[in-house]
Simulated scan of single mutants.
Amino acid sequence: MSNDTGARPVPEGRLVLLRHGETEWSRAMKHTGLTDVPLTSAGEEAARRSAPLLAEFDFGLVLVSPKERARRTAELVGLTSSTVEPNLVEWDYGGYEGRTTTEIREELGYDWTVWEDGVVPGDSPGESIEQVAARARAVIDRVMPVLEEGKDVALVGHGHTNRVLTSVWLRTEPRFGAQLELDAGSICVLAYERHFPSIARWNQPAPA
C-alpha cells in the first residue's frame, strides 16, 4: 500500500497477537506475571485447534515470551521457528502476583484495578503501566522493519502485555487496554487502515 503524500510507505505486513492458552491460574482469574504456570490440558487442546487460523499468514518473524505457557502455545499452534523476546513477558505484578482482583479489593477496601492503581512490590519489584508500555514500544520497533517488507509477524505472549501493546500500536493511552477484553488462547490481528494503525481482528477464540 503506497502513501499518497510521498511519505514512508504504510506497512503491509500484519501483526498477529496470540495470548497463551488456559492455565490453572488464568482459569481462577489470578494475576499471573513472572510465575511460570503450565498450560492446562484444555489450554493445550485449544492451542492445537487454533493452528489452522494461522494458515493465511506469511510470517517473517515469530517472537515469543520466555515463559513456558507462551512457548508451549507457540509450539502447539505450529510456530516452531520462534525467537524468545524478553520484552513480551507479562506485567510484573509484584506483591499482587497470584492474587485475584476480588482478593486485592477486599484487602484494600476500594475498587482497585491494575490499570488505574498499579501494583506494590513483593517477591519482585513490580512494574508501572508506563514500564510495560515502554517494553511494548521496543517490541513494535523491533518488528516494524519486517512489517514494512510485507511479511507478517507473530507475537506469542500474555493478556495484559498484549493489551498494552495494542494500545501503543494504536498510538493511544496505554490504559486504553483496560477496555480490550482478551481471553486465554485468543488470536488478534493488528494492521493498518490506510495510514492509521488499526485492529483488523480481535479476541478470536479457538475453533470448536
Rank of each mutant, 00 (worst) to 15 (best):
T40I: 03
T40C: 11
T40Q: 12
T40E: 12
S41V: 07
A42G: 04
A42E: 06
A42M: 06
G43C: 13
G43Q: 11
G43H: 03
G43N: 07
G43K: 07
E44F: 05
E44S: 12
E44L: 09
E44M: 09
E45N: 10
E45I: 08
E45M: 02
A46F: 06
A46K: 14
R48L: 14
R48H: 10
R48A: 11
R48Q: 14
R49L: 10
R49C: 05
R49G: 00
R49K: 03
S50A: 05
S50G: 14
S50D: 06
S50C: 08
A51L: 04
A51G: 10
P52I: 08
L53C: 08
L53V: 06
L53E: 09
E56Y: 04
F57D: 07
F57M: 04
D58H: 10
D58P: 05
D58A: 11
F59W: 13
L61G: 00
V62Y: 04
V62K: 02
V62L: 01
L63D: 13
V64I: 04
S65D: 13
P66W: 04
P66G: 02
E68L: 07
E68F: 13
E68A: 14
E68I: 14
R69V: 09
R69G: 02
R69D: 01
A70N: 09
R71I: 11
A74N: 03
E75N: 14
L76M: 15
L76A: 02
V77T: 03
L79R: 01
L79S: 04
L79V: 13
L79D: 01
L79P: 01
T80K: 02
T83H: 08
T83L: 06
T83S: 12
T83I: 07
T83C: 11
T83K: 05
V84W: 02
V84P: 01
V84S: 11
V84M: 07
P86F: 10
L88K: 02
V89D: 06
V89A: 15
E90C: 05
E90M: 09
E90T: 08
W91V: 07
D92V: 15
D92T: 09
Y93T: 00
Y93K: 03
Y93G: 00
Y93W: 13
G94N: 11
E97H: 02
E97L: 01
E97W: 00
G98Y: 15
T100C: 12
T100F: 04
T101D: 04
T101R: 14
T101N: 15
T102N: 06
T102Q: 15
E103I: 07
E103Y: 08
E103V: 12
E103L: 04
E106Y: 12
E107A: 03
E107C: 15
L108W: 05
L108K: 05
G109A: 09
G109I: 10
G109D: 08
Y110K: 11
Y110P: 04
D111K: 15
D111N: 03
D117T: 12
V119E: 00
V119Q: 00
V119L: 08
V119H: 01
V119S: 00
V119M: 02
